[in-house]
């Protein structure tokens, strides 16, 4: 009995030794290989963006003569400035739509999240689950009636229509995020506030909203990107050029320039710049927001 145990310990120790030895030899190769593979993957992954940037600053003759991947003969910054001038109305419209939508989403969802997380009331869990379910509702389920409703209300082809719809679409996800966040804030803060003589609204506004800053910044970055990037509502709820967001603008732009690919690429770059800047500047918040409630793409 004692023999067997000793024997077994020995052999398992051997295994550990030999495998660690093997790993020690393999390690540098494995590592080198992994790094090379990763860099290669990253390059491939980056090609579409790199190609677009490259195309945006070249001339068509240059592209047709030297191929799409050659270094530019000359830098045509005018492509970008022309694209910018053309896209400017759309960019403006996108800003007018997106900023109030984000603000509205935040306010409405913070209030709801606060109630769902911090208050005890009949139907609370039920309400929460409804909201979770709603965050999966496809646009397709609402597209037609919303279009109809906005026409009936005389809001078709207004910024209002898009703002309201974006807030509506973002409510479930944002409420989910805020509820989950407020769940992590100690409930005693609310009670301390009550004892200090604060009304429910004061507690919300002066204690919970400031405390929610980390969640808010994540949510702002996410919502900004999502709302800015929406295409379908922009198509459905607008008629004239003035109210169309930049995502619709890029399609119009594409239609106008057809095979002037340097211009189309420039348009894409211009249209993407706002969300790219936000993303690059607030990548951490963006990622945190996604992992906080990640149900969307």
């Amino acid at each position: 009995m004692t023999d067997t145990t000793t024997h077994m310990t020995n052999s398992s120790a051997d295994v550990v030794n030999s495998s660690s030895l093997r790993e020690r030899i393999e390690e540098p190769f494995m590592r080198g290989g992994q790094i090379a593979l990763l860099v290669l993957l990253a390059l491939v992954f980056f090609l579409p963006v790199a190609g677009t940037l490259l195309t945006a600053i070249r001339t068509i003759p240059d592209i047709t003569q030297n191929g799409s991947w050659a270094l530019p003969l000359s830098y045509e910054w005018s492509n970008l400035s022309l694209a910018f001038m053309k896209m400017l109305p759309y960019l403006k419209a996108s800003a007018i739509i997106t900023l109030p939508s984000v603000a509205g989403t935040l306010l409405v969802s913070m209030m709801a999240g606060y109630a769902l997380s911090r208050m005890r009331f009949e139907g609370r869990i039920w309400m929460f689950l409804v909201i979770v379910s709603l965050s999966f509702v496809p646009v397709h389920t609402q597209l037609i009636p919303v279009f109809k409703l906005m026409s009936d209300l005389g809001l078709h082809d207004t910024f209002w229509a898009q703002i309201i719809v974006h807030i509506m679409r973002q409510i479930p996800f944002a409420v989910l995020i805020m509820t989950n966040f407020f769940n992590t804030v100690p409930g005693e803060l609310r009670e301390a506030g009550r004892i200090d003589g604060a009304s429910e609204w004061t507690i919300f506004q002066r204690i919970y909203v400031p405390v929610a800053r980390p969640a808010l910044s994540a949510l702002i970055v996410l919502e900004f990107t999502w709302i800015w990037n929406d295409l379908l509502w922009g198509l459905v709820l607008t008629q004239g050029a003035g109210k169309k967001p930049v995502t619709v603008g890029i399609l119009a732009f594409q239609g106008e320039y057809e095979i002037a690919w340097n211009m189309v690429a420039s348009g894409a770059v211009i249209a993407a710049i706002p969300t790219l800047i936000v993303f690059l500047a607030f990548q951490k918040h963006f990622i945190r927001g996604m992992t906080m409630g990640s149900v969307k793409g």
């Binding site: 100690p186 301390a192 506030g193 009550r194 004892i195 200090d196 003589g197 405390v211």
Partner: peptide, 29 residues
């Protein structure tokens, strides 16, 4: 309501307002 009872409470986990300085925490009421 609690505020009308003229009481003060010290919580087990203190429940200090994390975004307020000490002076503001004390004088919030």
């Amino acid at each position: 309501q609690p505020k009308a009872r003229d009481i003060a409470m010290v919580f087990q986990n203190y429940a200090l307002y994390p975004h307020m300085k000490v002076a503001d925490n004390m004088s919030f009421s």
